[in-house]
Write a protein that binds this DNA or RNA. Sequence first.
DNA 1: TCTGGGGTCCTAGGACCC
DNA 2: TCTGGGGTCCTAGGACCC
Length: 424
Amino acid sequence: MKIALVDVNNCYVSCERVFNPRLEGKPVVVLSNNDGCVVARSAEAKALRIAMGEPWFKLKNLANKHGIIAHSSNYALYADMSNRFMSILSNFAPHIEIYSIDECFLDLSGFSMDLTEYAQEIRKKVWQWVGLPVCVGIGSTKTLSKLANHVAKKKPKWNGVCDLTALPSVLQHQLFSGIDAGEVWGVGRKLQESLNAIGIKSVLDLINAGPVWIRNRFSVTLARTLSELNGIPCIELEEAASKHQIMSSRSFGQPVKTFSDLSESITLYVARAAEKLRLQGSVAGGIQVHIRTNPFKPDDPQYSQGVIMPLMAPTDDTLKLNRAALAGLKRIYRPGHAYAKAGVTLVGLSTKHQHSADLLTDCDAIEKRSMLMKTMDAINMKYGKNTLDPGISGITERRAWSMKRGNRTPAYTTDWNELPIALA
DNA sequence: TCTGGGGTCCTAGGACCC
DNA sequence: TCTGGGGTCCTAGGACCC
């Protein structure tokens, strides 16, 4: 097997730079919803040692001192850029797996040409067509291709492409002895700490550990990772798999106290989640509702609760899902708390047509409802999100709980009203 | 003042059954 | 008085990923 991982460098910052070249060469960060914390950093910002996930309010001083430019996140723009990026990649391999908004695995098994040259061609094409800088890692398993991508990104001498399959194993081991085990895909902070404590520091140390011992001391997951590092594929390439659960949740722009404000927000999240559900042709067997206070305010009374509401029959109907969600909210809502976040998760998903109607099912009513949902989705697709929502979700301008996004750039590519206009 | 959102997988432990 | 052992299923929670 030969797998390439193509990954956009500093994705959100790079997307912003496509439309605003003045950001070039400057420290730039993109913030999460509510302008809460840093989710993307330019190379210049990384050089200032700004960490991923750092709360923005803690960086205000540093920002003033170095002229750091912060943008609110603009997901409509990033999603559209991502689609263009993926569609370019699909021309370079028979099978691809879109792994995240900025990463894609390509199956290059059986390709006999010089893969480093091929990967450079990919980089060139993506740069020419959408203006995004990417790096490419190639390995005989997904885990190795991720590791190769890390090398391509961090070490300039590789010039953006690292093909481990073309590297003799002596040199591979030399390379791996200089990389922390924590950089491996699947080894997070906790695992890295435990591994370090028993003397496994580098990727090479991990490769040399016994698989049985790792399985017993840790977990099957880490044992699988170890096999992958040794070139034995354990993680398949998955093309367009359906989601097993669909979540929609948000932190509020300001604390929310009343049941009615909470139910407005829940209704909106149900609408978003149900739309995704219908898009992938699934139905949900249940809906989970969760609410919580702000854990960063330990002096406030804390409350965090969720409940799963099973449905009589699996459905993709926004209004039925919403009825269940609000009944769940009623169960877990406690007055007197300042809620910071709420959300819903659709669970027990299955393919829509797997379900046969029973004697009590009113097929006519279902058919009518299904038309209503299709119409709603079509209108929202054409005129923008939230054009049509269930009445209870509140009027946009009056929502006390809406997000803060102070520095959002226009939706350059997805909204007619925000197209960039070239000034002659 | 101000700390994201959306996923997957595994494990432990309780309920229940025979 | 003495009160097993093995299996399945479900859920909550943790760890990880981007």
